[in-house]
Write a protein that binds this DNA or RNA. Structure first.
Lengths: 242, 242
DNA sequence: CACTATAGGACACTGAGTGCCACCCGAGAA
DNA sequence: TTCTCGGGTGGCACTCAGTGTCCTATAGTG
């Protein structure tokens, strides 16, 4: 009787099998890691606690470590998309800053989980390394973007890498401070401020660039596809006048 | 006949059993990884190629990935020792720069191996992550040292982390360029130059500090133990006058 | 209602990493 | 010489992460 089951879903919110398998696995993993340690927890236990089969765990996570982290692969794709979608008129450093704020946002979205995860990660070397590897991928993406938008000639290439490292380091610094504080309020503001302070020191490096704005009384030309939303056009104009 | 055996060692350089097991394991691992890939190589194969038992491999390396890397644990201890042994009179940034040069030195000491290792590491995610984790440990050590020597109050703490990240990033940048170039000549000089360029930009951050040299006509006091070598005293005086 | 795609389950298998015990060998000490 | 002590090693045996393969069940579609 399929119709009955559908009704059941709608009434109780229960979905036969595949509701948020991923979420329950993450929750189970996090609790178990906190309770009895990472090495002492087997994937079987996590799967059992989440009410799924062991094999299913590895359909959602490549390795055991992945279980408790936000979906960095997806987030990284999002970040790259955001960077590449950024208008050539907005300063590259600004785009990178926004990207960093986006990443921070995923942590801020669920402080409970983030704090718990921090507690575990702090104590388990294997998890720390995993997290470091993840952040280093963002760093690579930032550096690549800067090279693409701002030139990849050799004195500058290194600077871009340093800037990317600085942004990621600052992000992590602010994030950790916030997590240690229990995850209350306004992380994003703190990161904005901190990044401003850091990039203020680093920006001058790239200011020989200082975008040749060719002349004073220039004409602003906006080209957009017919279906471009108005707000996006407005945004472009805004950026161009910055 | 112990004396005979001793002679044997001295004549042939051969040591009965524990000749550099570690080195042969590393060599075997590197060659096998290059020839047939990391995942396709089992620890059994490495051990067999090195002429030891599987169990012995894990006595020398915690994990399979460690096999091809320089002894980062030992190097890190050395770095920390060097930092802590640095005179309080030499600028902290200088000590960190020297430490980075020390690390680079271990790569430069055996270019053949370093280049080979680079080839493998470039292609195997697992090895890349391992390397990133290793470098991040140096970064932590640098930041901790700067905090200790230069104050750990909050605006500065972040800057120290950023500087540590910048130094490590620069080190890696120079190292990778050198490795891609086949590992010929003068890496250390290149790193010195690059670090100079980078820290020149970052140094001003900390210059509000500008070491309260308390007064103009100060007295230089050198305290040393009776057995301190003269060159070390001279070095201290040199640093104090810098 | 049947059909297909997709998520999950069952099972077997490889290989990394560990604990344990036995061994060998050089260095003293009796 | 003989005993013993300690460090590096070999040999199992065991756990468990991670993968390949095949099968099942369910949701969505026409």
């Amino acid at each position: 009787m399929p119709p009955e089951k559908v009704l059941l879903h709608e009434r109780t919110g229960y979905v036969p099998a595949r509701r948020d398998v991923r979420r329950s696995l993450t929750a189970a993993a996090l609790d178990l890691f906190l309770a009895q340690g990472f090495d002492e927890t087997t994937v079987d236990q996590i799967a059992e606690a989440a009410g799924v089969a062991r094999r299913t765990f590895f359909r959602h996570f490549k390795v055991k470590e992945d279980a408790i982290f936000p979906d960095h692969d997806a987030m990284l794709r999002e970040i790259v998309a955001h960077l590449e979608a950024a208008s050539p008129l907005v300063p590259p450093l600004t785009a990178v800053t926004e990207a960093a704020l986006m990443v921070l946002g995923t942590y801020a979205a669920d402080p409970e989980t983030s704090v718990k995860r921090y507690e575990v990660t702090r104590r388990v070397p294997s998890l720390r390394e995993h997290e470091i590897a993840a952040t280093s991928r963002y760093q690579r993406a930032f550096a690549a973007f800067l090279n693409e938008r701002d030139g990849a000639a050799e004195p500058r290439r290194l600077r871009h890498e340093v800037i990317a490292a600085a942004v990621v380091t600052t992000h992590n610094h602010v994030l950790r401070a916030w997590l240690r504080g229990g995850g209350t309020d306004d992380v994003r503001d703190r990161l904005s401020e901190a990044l401003y302070g850091i990039l203020e020191g680093l920006g001058p490096w790239l200011d020989d660039r200082d975008r040749p704005r060719d002349g004073e009384d220039d004409v602003l030309v906006v080209v957009a596809r017919r279906d471009t939303p108005l707000w996006k056009i407005a945004q472009e104009i805004e950026a161009a006048r910055g």
